[in-house]
Amino acid sequence: MESDTIVMNETAITDALIDCTLQLADDSLIMGHRCSEWCGHGPVLEQDIALTNIALDYVGQSRNLYQYAALLLEQLPKEKALSLVDFDIIPEHITEDSLAYLRDVGAFKNHLLFEQPNGDWAQTILKIFFFSVYRFYLFQQLQNNADERLAAIAEKSVKEVTYHLKWSSEWVIRLGDGTDESKFRMLQAIDALWPFVGELFEPAGYETLCYYSDMLTFERLRSDWLNKINQIFETATLPPQSIGRWHQTGGKNGYHSEHLGYILAEMQFLQRTFPNAIW
């Protein structure tokens, strides 16, 4: 009896690890896609290049995460793996590509915040800033996670995130403490994005099993995030914010806004039209 319970718990933790890895990968991929939408549309060449470089870092991070999720899934009996991941088209082998291209909206676990449209430059900057601060503290914690491979991915990624945090903080300050117009745009961006930030700090069941096993860690993530946001907002002469009780949620459990469907339609089009195409 007792050994059965242990086996069940271990299975639950492996399942949760797969979900967590996919959640992290989906956030990175969707942010990478959003940043890449700016390619050729940046306000000046240098910042166009900045966004495509950041997109490259995000897509690279998502590849490391999807590769790990695929490895974990491939070790399971196929039936079991397919019960954990809802593929729209069943792949012969589960790979980083099948995870990115063959799942539909309901199978994606990214936060609602990151699928929101780019909007103007201010809204794009603010979203990257929110994401950078979130990932900076999350990956610092994850570097010490019991799962070695997840910890290694976090250790690698946090260095890139640190640089994004520096760059995006500078832009928040430049725009917030800039002209009347740039400040107005930043205030609009805060209004547009703030309803979605609460979801970052409302752990899904699988996150609790994986890395928020102790709630203190989770509380610390929220307070570190908010302190950093308000510290930069103060320098940027933007009003301080707090995280209220009400916010939009659902993304982490597959309930998305209409925006994700459009992202996937564009991103997955080629693989859906010409299955297994390589180039």
Binding site: Q47, K166, S169, I173
Partner: peptide
């Protein structure tokens, strides 16, 4: 790398004329 914004950085030497009188144009490049 430090995450702080607009942090004072060491001067970078020009590889062509070896001057330290240089400026950052963009945090990201080619």
């Amino acid at each position: 790398c430090h995450p702080d914004a607009f942090q004072e950085e060491e001067a970078i030497q020009c590889p062509h004329c070896l001057s330290y009188h240089t400026r950052l144009v963009s945090r990201f490049g080619s």
